[in-house]
């Protein structure tokens, strides 16, 4: 018995494995559970419910959600507006990723050596990034205005009045006009991240390349860019993910018009879901956006892993 008393704490009923793990984990559970409950209810549950909705023909009103299998997806394949939105979205993703990176990179390189006025330039290059899309949309709506917009006034002033037009009302250019506004607002973000990335680029290597007679372009392409590869991957991935689900700026500036000329997947989904009440069909569209975005982000994670390896 003396031995068992010594072992007492270990065989006492309160120290059953369950009680022991409860005591070990209760603090962690207490810290994580509130966030987890809210997240499960408002994010995880709706996520899976989207998939379920997409397999029904629900209109948002009836009590019964009629199961239709993959019918919504089959309908998507024959839907001209879906392909048009997808096409616009892809243009959006390509132009909206490349342009901010090229311009943001140029600005970051120019400010790399922190010339006089560095803080001033950085402050204002980044400023559009803190504004709401509504503000950006309205400001650019004004810039493009056919009657009093400054873009047409500027074109008139330099003798290019032939190309001035109602930029957002012309189906041929509306998508690009909205894109320019979005690019204007995104440059600051890309610029700031690339500027931070440049701080880790080896100056010794650049100096060595200069001595070896490399010109500016060679130094940039062969010395700077490879060292920025990791940062560039992140920026590209973030722009891709944002691009596939772009909604706000298009919705505010054109609402998808004129004549669907700026319709993207997200604005189309919104209309189907909340103005047409085709909940099932809209959910199928939402699932498509999700899948495309996930593919983009998986690619992103792969790239990051490769970079870390």
């Amino acid at each position: 018995m003396a031995g068992t008393t010594l072992d007492g704490p270990f065989i006492a009923p309160s120290s059953s494995p369950v009680a022991r793990s409860w005591r070990r984990y209760r603090a962690g559970i207490f810290f994580v559970l509130p966030a987890l409950i809210l997240y499960l209810l408002f994010m995880v549950y709706p996520f899976f419910r989207s998939i379920y909705f997409s397999l029904t023909s629900w209109n948002g009103v009836t009590a019964v959600k009629e199961w239709v299998g993959l019918a919504n997806y089959r309908e998507l394949i024959g839907d001209r507006l879906f392909w048009l939105s997808l096409q616009h979205t892809i243009i959006w993703v390509i132009v909206g990723t490349i342009a901010p990176i090229v311009i943001g990179m140029l600005l970051a390189i120019l400010l790399w050596r922190r010339p006089k006025g560095f803080t001033l330039f950085r402050t204002f290059f980044f400023m559009p990034q803190v504004l709401s899309t509504v503000v950006i949309g309205i400001v650019w709506n004004w810039i493009y205005n056919p009657i009093f917009g400054i873009l047409n006034e500027a074109l008139d002033a330099v003798g290019l009045e032939d190309i001035s037009r109602g930029w957002l009302g012309d189906p041929d250019v509306a998508l690009y006009a909205v894109l320019v506004a979005a690019i204007w607002a995104t440059i600051g973000f890309v610029f700031v991240i690339l500027l931070a990335g440049l701080q880790n680029v080896s100056k010794d290597l650049l100096e060595a390349a200069t001595i070896d007679g490399a010109n500016v372009w060679q130094r940039f392409w062969n010395v700077t860019v490879p060292q920025l590869a990791g940062v560039l991957n992140v920026v590209i991935a973030l722009l891709l993910i944002g691009g596939f689900s772009v909604f706000d700026v298009v919705f505010v500036m054109t609402g998808g018009g004129p004549a669907n000329a700026t319709e993207v997947l997200a604005t189309y989904t919104y209309k189907e879901a909340f103005t047409q009440n085709n909940v099932g069909y809209a959910s199928a569209l939402a699932v498509v956006i999700t899948v495309i975005s996930l593919i983009a982000s998986v690619t992103f994670i792969r790239l990051r892993e490769r970079q870390e390896a």
Binding site: Y39, R49, F244, A266, L285, I289
Partner: peptide
């Protein structure tokens, strides 16, 4: 749990907005 949370960074709002509305 961590992965579950971090996946939320890559999920666009459209993936959840419709059921969220009805919830």
């Amino acid at each position: 749990v961590l992965v579950l949370f971090l996946l939320g960074l890559t999920v666009p709002f459209q993936s959840v907005m419709i059921p969220m509305y009805y919830l």
